[in-house]
Nucleic acid binder design. Structure first.
Length: 560
RNA sequence: GGUGGCGUAGCUCAGCUGGUUUAGAGCACCGGAUUCAUAACCCGGAGGUCGUCGGUUCAAGUCCGACCGCCACCA
């Protein structure tokens, strides 16, 4: 058993707004996991931050006639607010090019690169690439257009021809034009450093095989499949200005930066170091988290990042040799959206700007916990799923409001009205009552086990199954009847229901921290009492807080 | 073309290493009961030859093969 956990979620790229798919895919399950670990009593850190480097931000900035730094910082701040609004609580939210983090991050990245270089794992090689003489820069494939060398159709981009659907070799494109300046592009020679991933095939395969029982099979199968096909060399440097300068004393390294995917995962390490510096005044504290084998490092990512987290990053770590490999890589698929019946990807241009699938918009109008609940319920753990606004409303109303919230509400209003807002005496508890408490214990175990296995959907269902069982129990015990016929029996039933509410607060905490907090307050308890263990029954006479609506009911068309 | 995934009630999906399941849940639907509760809750009912065909097995949504249909990634 690991002694402590370091949890990361894939760094969001800071050139756009966050939507529900981002959250449900990585940040929310990771947050849920960390909350659970802490409630269980484990030491855990949750590390994240923005990925600020790379050509896309450089080009966004050029188009918006501003600087890459301005773009990166603007979206960094907005994304940070989105996370906070959803109660996704990182211990540190860094950024690979944010003022407070840049210095440490560049140093870590450059030293990392240098150590791998010194060990001889890079191959230096020249290639030809398209160049925009007016913009004075090499052009990524997407930023070139020309006539297709397969079918002679105009307007093909450097990666694909829309007319014939074939892949384009940008160097063969006829009359290539830069998308940046709309001037003709020319071929120039450039030099890059390639990481020989094939050098690591054997250790990576062995390591992945050892994870077969623990990891999601899709991640293992994908990674092993890539190794089987043979890992290629990959360029770890780029011809752009915005990024971490290549730290080599070589004229060919001038004006080049590290490939974003080289420095981005190092962000996990440099942000940890920054956090240690902020907390304890010494950045070196990060070693406890990254080098001590008693720490388990768990990466949460979207499916598109699998190759980097399961192969390239582990290869980098192996080459460097100073840190341990990930304990688990939890990859989720994408979440599409279903608007007016059609399923589609969230898109900056096609998704309406004020659609609640954008987190900024959602938070203006709705409860963060409702979204956390729904995104966990549709978590894309085995396959892509779709965010459907109408389904969101239905599940909010029929599950959170009608089942979970209703049980809490009927229990606490009953206690407020007929027992003076105090916990009644449970002395007359029956076997039925004790059975119900046993069911609660089982729910706690099952939900915990499923979270440990990264089966969040199932875990949430188990929580809801218990909430439903609570309503059944309430119906069986009929306190509204026994109140008039046998007050002691009624008291025992309501005391048991209050105990069950306490269980629900604990069960809900990893998924819906806000609701859990409200429940704890309604139970008249101090906030810090949430521990993932069977709660002691509240003493008879314990004063309860004021009952309040836990989840708001939504109108069917409120998301339209 | 290669690789991986998916195809189970009207809808959204569970069913992990084959045998207590006569195939499950939620929603929607129908009937009933109840009044503590945000017309919420509770009980009952209806609804599926588990994509198709073949195979392995005492036993297959669950394993194997072929095929059909969707999707993603790679070429």
């Amino acid at each position: 058993m690991p002694k402590r956990y370091l949890v990361t979620a894939g760094l969001p790229y800071s050139n756009g707004r966050l939507h529900v798919g981002h959250i449900g895919g990585a940040y929310l399950p990771a947050d849920t996991y960390v909350r659970y670990l802490r409630a269980r009593g484990d030491e855990a850190l949750y590390i994240c931050g923005s990925d600020d480097n790379g050509v896309a931000i450089e080009i966004s900035a050029a188009q918006a006639k501003t600087t890459p730094q301005e773009i990166a910082t603007r979206f960094h701040e907005r994304q940070k607010l989105d996370f906070a609004g959803l109660r996704i609580d990182f211990d540190v939210y860094g950024g690979t090019h944010q003022p407070a983090f840049t210095e440490l991050h560049e140093r870590f990245s450059q030293e990392f690169f240098k150590r791998i270089f010194d060990k001889g794992y890079f191959t230096k090689r020249s290639t030809k690439q398209l160049y925009d003489p007016k913009a004075n820069r090499f052009l990524p494939d997407r930023y070139v257009r020309g006539t297709c060398h397969h079918c002679n159709a105009p307007g093909a981009t450097g990666d694909q021809c829309e007319a014939c659907g074939q892949m384009i070799d940008p160097l063969l494109l006829i009359d290539p034009i830069s998308e940046i300046t709309h001037e003709p592009a020319e071929v120039r020679e450039t030099t890059h450093w390639y990481l020989r991933l094939n050098d690591f095939e054997k250790p990576l395969r062995k390591w992945l095989e050892s994870k077969r029982d623990e990891w999601r099979s899709s991640v293992i199968n994908f990674a092993l499949g890539q190794i089987k096909q043979g890992l290629p060399e990959r360029a770890m440097t780029r011809d752009i200005e915005w990024g971490v300068p290549v730290p080599l004393d070589d004229p060919d390294a001038k004006d080049k930066v590290l490939f974003v995917w080289f420095d981005a995962p190092i962000g996990y390490v440099s942000f940890t170091a920054k956090l240690c510096e902020q907390r304890d005044g010494d950045w070196r504290g990060y070693e406890k988290w990254w080098s001590d084998p008693e720490t388990a490092i768990v990466h949460f990512i979207g499916e598109d990042n699998t190759v980097f987290h399961a192969l390239i990053w582990p290869a980098m770590l192996t080459a460097d040799g100073r840190h341990q490999l990930p304990y688990n890589v939890v990859a989720n698929n994408f979440i599409n959206i279903r608007l007016s019946g059609d399923e589609a990807k969230v898109s900056k241009s096609k998704t309406p700007e004020d659609s609640p699938v954008w987190i900024e918009e959602y938070l203006k109008r709705f409860d963060p916990d409702a979204l956390r609940y729904y995104l966990t319920a549709i978590a894309p753990e085995n396959a892509r799923t779709a965010f459907d606004p109408r389904d969101f409303v239905t599940r909010n109303n029929s599950e959170l409001v009608a089942a979970f919230g209703n049980f809490v509400n009927r229990t606490l209003t009953f206690a407020a009205r007929y027992f003076d807002g105090k916990v009644p005496d449970a002395a007359a508890q029956t076997d039925v009552d004790r059975e119900h408490v046993k069911l609660a214990d089982e729910a706690l175990k099952k939900v915990g086990k499923n979270i440990e296995g990264h089966r969040y959907r199932l875990a949430l269902e188990e929580m809801m199954a218990f909430a439903r069982a609570c309503n059944q129990y309430f119906g069986v015990r009929e306190p509204w009847r026994t109140r008039k016929e046998d007050l002691n029996d009624c008291a025992a039933a309501i005391a048991t229901c209050i105990h069950a509410v306490h269980y629900l607060a604990i069960l809900a905490y990893p998924f819906m921290p806000g609701a859990a907090r409200k429940l704890i307050a309604m139970l008249g308890l101090p906030e810090e009492t949430i521990r993932w263990e069977p709660p002691a029954p509240l003493a008879a006479g314990h004063p309860l807080g004021k009952p309040a609506i836990l989840f708001e009911k939504l109108l069917p068309d409120c998301m339209d």
